[in-house]
Computed example of a mutant assay.
Amino acid sequence: MPRLAYPAAARRLGETGTALVRVVVDVNGLPREVTLHQSSGHPRLDEAALDAMRAARFQPYRVDGKAVEAVAIAPLAFQLQ
């Protein structure tokens, strides 16, 4: 999972939530397309989730030993402790 950076303003305001992020991972394990599938309810958290997914690196998905493009929807949760 990508490393999340909790936005300082969201932390101060007590914003929490889970953003569902859709990512298309290319044959090299790089995120080719990243979009918001479902909002966390807070634009700051949504943007942080998208940024984290854009920076993430993945193991390429393989079919019969060959790397192929893959699509996933990942939940990225922001919770204050």
Rank of each mutant, 00 (worst) to 15 (best):
D46P: 09
P2M: 09
P2G: 11
H42N: 14
P43N: 08
V23F: 04
L4Y: 03
A70R: 12
E69V: 13
A72W: 03
L13C: 01
G41P: 14
V25K: 04
V25G: 04
R12W: 06
E33Q: 13
L80A: 02
A49L: 08
E47W: 00
R12G: 00
I73P: 11
L80T: 03
H42T: 12
V68M: 01
Q59M: 06
F58N: 02
I73H: 07
T18S: 07
R54S: 12
K66C: 03
G29A: 03
M53Y: 01
R32A: 15
H42W: 11
E15L: 12
A5H: 13
L4I: 09
R12P: 00
A70H: 11
A52K: 06
P43C: 05
D64L: 05
R32G: 08
A77D: 06
I73N: 10
A77Q: 13
P75V: 10
A10Y: 06
R44Q: 13
Q81I: 10
A19N: 02
V63R: 14
V34W: 01
L13Q: 15
S40E: 03
A8K: 10
A55M: 01
V24F: 05
G65K: 08
R44D: 15
E33C: 01
R3T: 14
A72Q: 10
L30T: 08
V68Y: 03
Y61E: 06
H37D: 14
Y6Q: 13
